[in-house]
Every structure is written in C-alpha cells, then in structure tokens.
Amino acid sequence: MSTEAATREERKYWRIWAILISLPLLSLAAQQTGMGWLAILVSVVVMLTSTWFAVTTWMHVHLEPRFVPYLCLLGIAAMFLLFFMVAPDVMSHEGNNWQNRSADTPAHIERPVDPLAPPGAAAETHH
C-alpha cells in the first residue's frame, strides 16, 4: 500500500471515529431533554447505527467470505428466538394454576428474603 493511500485510509478511520463519538452524544441529548418514547427510539437507532458503522467500516465484515456475516446473524437469530419464545412466560405474571403476585406488586417485596442469612447481612436500608 502506498503511503498516500495509507494516509487516506487513516483519515477515513478518523472520520468514522468522529461519527461514532458523536452518535452516543445524540442519544445522551435525547435522554437529557426527556423526550420519553422518542428518546428510546433515538437511542435504539443510534445503537444500531453505531453498530453498523463499527461492523462494516472497522471490522470489515463485507470483505470476509459470505458465511461470516451469516454465522453472526445466526447467533443473533438464536437470541431473537430465545427472547420471543421465553418472553411469553417470563413477562406474563399469571398462567395455568399459578399467579406471580410478587411480580405484580414489587414495591412491597423488592427486598431480599433469606431466612438463613445472619441478621444484618442482607441490606435492609432504603434509599
């Protein structure tokens, strides 16, 4: 690689760096201004965009054989599968002959309950 091409390459990395530095600031701003749902939307977009930039321009995934991104996508797909097949159970607080009452009224029980723990070991102080 010629020195000139190398410097061009390095300048490109600096540009990506500038983008990746400013993107989190964007989501920070969205959160600080208290935009509610919009802030969440912005941060998800920022999260995915910065991932996209890092993966394509720094990790050079497009220069690898095709199976490499597919393999990573397979892992991500497995996680989506895990999420969507488990969420109906974990997120529902009642089901066949059971009801997760403590999950519905967490304010009262959001404390450790450990009968065998020595007194004082479990943090009992509120903030």
Binding site: D89, V90, A103, I109, R111
Partner: peptide, 13 residues
C-alpha cells in the same frame, strides 16, 4: 427468585 421480580422459569428456559 420471584419474590423480587426474578423468575425460576427463566433458568429452565
């Protein structure tokens, strides 16, 4: 632990 919002079924999954 369901008492604090956890879920035992989660481990099974």
């Amino acid at each position: 632990d369901p008492r604090t919002g956890g879920d035992p079924v989660l481990w099974q999954h």
